[in-house]
């Protein structure tokens, strides 16, 4: 049902990001979307890829600390107010966004938003009630 995100701890050093993406390249992993959150000393790289198992294995083999997080992937209409259709019912029910990022759906004009909510289950329930489509892990891999 939910999408899976790979997160990686990286120190704020030159070339470190390129090393991570090179590992993924060599493991034949395609990156669908990513976001990098940073502090002065370190960053957390969050990735949506086409093959989580292969990505995780390759990164761990190279000594990285890797986490798997359940996130929600939601298709957002390419029109004014598209994002609000999703956010409004959630904020009315006091679900908070921890972080989010987006990528374009290669199959149509719409965007796919990746959300990490403070209450994952509650968010899922509200989206289902509003009949908002949540994209599965399998669908993302097949994009």
């Amino acid at each position: 049902m939910c999408a899976e995100q790979i997160s990686i701890f990286i120190e704020n050093k030159e070339g470190r990001l390129a090393e991570v993406t090179a590992i993924l390249r060599d493991a034949d992993v395609n990156i669908r979307a990513l976001s990098l959150a940073d502090t002065t000393d370190f960053g957390v790289l969050r990735l949506i890829v086409n093959n989580n198992d292969r990505a995780e294995k390759a990164l761990k083999k190279e000594g990285f600390t890797v986490g798997i997080t359940q996130v929600l992937a939601v298709e957002v209409k390419d029109e004014p107010g598209g994002l609000n259709d999703i956010l409004d019912p959630l904020s009315e029910n006091e679900v908070n966004v921890e972080y989010m990022y987006a990528f374009a759906n290669p199959q149509c004009k719409n965007a796919i938003m990746i959300f990490r909510f403070d209450d994952h289950d509650k968010a899922l329930k509200i989206l289902a009630e509003k009949k908002i489509k949540v994209i599965s892990k399998q669908e993302i891999c097949n994009l």
Binding site: Q5, F9, A37, F42, T65, G67, Y99
Partner: peptide, 15 residues
């Protein structure tokens, strides 16, 4: 050294 027990995908948790 960060290991899986310490790691989080959220910056604020780490900080």
């Amino acid at each position: 050294e960060i290991d899986e027990a310490l790691f989080s995908d959220e910056i604020k948790t780490l900080q």
